[in-house]
Design a protein around this nucleic acid. Structure first.
Lengths: 170, 170
DNA sequence: CCCGTGCGTGCTATGTTATTACACAAACCA
DNA sequence: TGGTTTGTGTAATAACATAGCACGCACGGG
């Protein structure tokens, strides 16, 4: 048993092969839409592109502004509708504590059914995901033992990411 | 060992002795301010009063409106400043998933240092608190094992409360 | 073939939540 | 008493999110 093995973490890495990674993310997103029988339309691709292109979380209006810079001018509601579809497809997550969105960097949520908790860096804004299925299981149990029927759960941690503390993971 | 004992839960009870409970809450809030060497000013009392008077969570602008109904007309910023003080004093909590606030019903957070998780009912809006220190310990450990230094954490569950499912707790 | 239906988008307007900047007042304390 | 800190007032604006209605396009049944 590897008791203190570092948790498998998915933190976005700036400055490393961004182009390649971006393309991969786009392909994975497309696959996710296909698998769920949802349409990965042009607008959704653009919105996802903006979210995936940042290494931190991004607000709806920031997406709007960046798209406008590139010549695509749409109304807020259109961004929100695209975001809803991306959330449905599971390719982005919503960060409740910041009212913002970030690209999911793990391929395995849907395949394994294990849900992640979110780690949001206060310094650089990066958002990481670590497996938190046991945590969700525990909260579920706790809620039920209080007679509460849980439906949607949120677990978010803000603090300092490995890069910003100087401490390297692995 | 009471393995499956119901978790100690603090859910607000409408229709029972509201006046008395309200006064108690006011007194406890006052004590909390005193202990922290913060000032429980008139504005803060009013804002706290509105939050404590509801059994569910309440938004800043709803507080504003209710105070206006009672003749106190203040700017949003004043509400937010009072809310900040109340959060500092630990007498209210913020529900991130709803951008709203609710009165803390447990006297013991600061004395025991055990932090609660929040259970928010989708039907009646009531927000309950159950001890979640073990859950926070686990999230902490998970974050650290990923090289992340946790600072602020929250765990929120939305679902159906005991009263709204028909199931009675205890 | 064309029509209905479902879905996605455009457009306009509006609602909701939160903050910035600056001035004044009250309390606190040296 | 004068300086500092803390709290409040006022005005404006930023940031986040939704409502309501119309139009276009793809797809399948008749």
């Amino acid at each position: 048993m590897m008791v203190n093995a570092p948790a498998k973490i998915t933190f976005p890495s700036p400055d490393k092969q961004d182009g390649k990674r971006f393309t991969q993310m786009m392909e994975r997103a497309e696959a996710a839409f296909e698998q769920k029988e949802l349409r990965f339309t042009k607008l959704r691709q653009q919105v996802y592109g903006e979210i995936a292109a940042t290494h931190s979380s991004i607000g709806a209006y920031e997406i709007l502004a960046r798209m406008a810079d590139k010549g695509t001018r749409v109304a807020p509601i259109s961004i929100y509708r695209a975001i809803d579809a991306l959330l449905d497809a599971g390719v982005i997550h919503r960060l409740e504590s910041k009212n913002a969105f970030f690209a999911c960097r793990r391929a395995d949520h849907t395949s394994t059914g294990r849900r992640p908790i979110f780690l949001s860096c206060e310094v650089c804004g990066a958002v990481g995901e670590v497996d938190g299925q046991d945590i969700f299981d525990l909260t579920d149990e706790r809620a039920r033992s209080a007679g509460f029927t849980p439906k949607v759960k949120f677990v978010e941690i803000s603090g300092t990411c490995p890069r910003c503390t100087g401490k390297k993971p692995d």
